[in-house]
Nucleic acid binder design. Structure first.
Length: 353
DNA sequence: AATTCGGGGTG
DNA sequence: CACCCAGAATT
């Protein structure tokens, strides 16, 4: 096979990038803390979605020491709504490690960065290049799409062997003296021009190097393995009211939403009717539907949430729960569906209040 | 190698 | 509705 002209491709992408203005707030300086924080926040997250979170984090936690000193619940509250909450827990763990064991200094080698919890090959390469100008090529969703098209890769790109092939291409393509520039350029190129749908092939600076274009396969690459159907789950939430307080509990174990708060939960194979709920609920008081059901789409699950409220006179049977004022509940981090119930729900059907 | 971890934007 | 996003960790 003909040797691919990596130098020409990177040169054209860099040239294209020099005419692009995409300012990113975490790149105003080369503070490793800001680069690291932004990269963790942006994992599997659109820049437009993650940027407001980043701005709030640097405002509230300007240094790694301030982040390390914060309680995990405060960090989770700031992360609320962003998803993949293990990222926030790893963020806290790593901040403490850097602040307490390394005098506030992040590792300055690729291997050192890769050893941090929550930092994988992409993030280690991103920090190494953006913060320290080291020649490591990033491979994110954008780079995978761009290079899969350039090479006309027919194999599924979510197979590890294909990712390794693309990483190898990116490594060879990266100009060692311009690692940071090229990494930024190829990601912007994928995000703005070589997009998943309706790519701007007419304006493409590397069209003559693109095998997918030559084959007329741009719209079929990258290819992915079919995903299996989502699991469906049914959460029936009981909101107990004792005076002006409600009962909440932190989720534990290895299920979704670990570390976030929720109400008294009854999970069942299917959606329960009010009659069926009467038999299942180990309490004998009246409960009332308090909102329309909410369907929450996760990456691997579909969760339908039902919300019922009841007024109670004592906390018997609720010893494992925290009693918090309605006014104070906004200080706790909840999954989006429950935050919706507490704050966004348009019309309450609740007859109690 | 396969699976799971959220949530929102987009066509 | 399906797909995708500045991926990583676990099994």
């Amino acid at each position: 096979m003909k040797e691919r002209n990596y130098a020409a491709i990177s040169k054209n992408i860099l040239s294209w990038h020099s005419r692009i203005d995409r300012s990113l707030p975490w790149k105003v300086d080369r503070d490793p803390y800001k680069i690291w924080l932004s990269e963790i926040i942006m994992q599997q997250t659109r820049v437009e979605q993650g940027t407001p979170y980043y701005l709030r984090f640097v405002e509230r936690f300007p240094t790694v020491e301030s982040l390390a000193a914060a309680p995990i619940d405060e960090i989770l509250k700031a992360w609320e709504g962003l998803g993949y909450y293990q990222r926030a827990r790893n963020l806290h763990f790593t901040a403490r490690q850097v602040a307490l064991e390394n005098n506030g200094n992040f590792p300055d080698t690729y291997e050192g960065l890769l050893a941090l919890k929550g930092v994988g090959t992409y993030t280690a390469a991103a920090i190494a290049s953006f913060a320290y100008d080291l020649p490591y090529a990033v491979v994110d969703g954008n780079v995978i799409r761009v290079l899969a098209r350039v090479a006309g890769i027919d194999a599924p790109v979510n197979a590890p062997s294909t990712v390794r092939e693309i990483q190898s291409m990116a490594d060879r393509m990266l100009p060692p003296a311009q690692g940071a520039d090229f990494n930024q350029a190829i990601m912007d190129f994928g995000a703005l021009l070589c997009r998943p749908k309706n790519p701007h092939c007419g304006d493409c600076p590397i069209q003559s190097h693109c095998r997918a274009h030559a084959m007329g396969e741009v719209h079929n690459i990258p290819k992915k393995k079919p995903k299996k159907p989502k699991r469906k789950r049914y959460f029936h939430y009981l909101i107990f009211n004792l005076d002006d307080q409600i009962f909440i509990r932190k989720r534990r174990g290895n299920d979704i939403w670990k570390g976030l708060y929720e109400f008294y939960l009854i999970e069942h194979e299917g959606l329960l009717t009010t009659e069926e709920l009467d038999k299942v609920i180990p309490f004998d008081f009246d409960f009332h539907p308090a909102a329309a059901n909410r369907i929450q789409q996760l990456s691997h699950q579909t969760i339908e949430c039902m919300f019922l409220e009841a007024r109670i006179q004592d906390d018997a049977g609720l010893e494992d729960y925290e009693r918090v004022d309605r006014k104070q509940v906004c200080k706790y981090a909840f999954p989006r569906a429950l935050d919706w119930y507490l704050n966004d729900k348009a019309v309450t059907l609740n007859l109690l209040f």
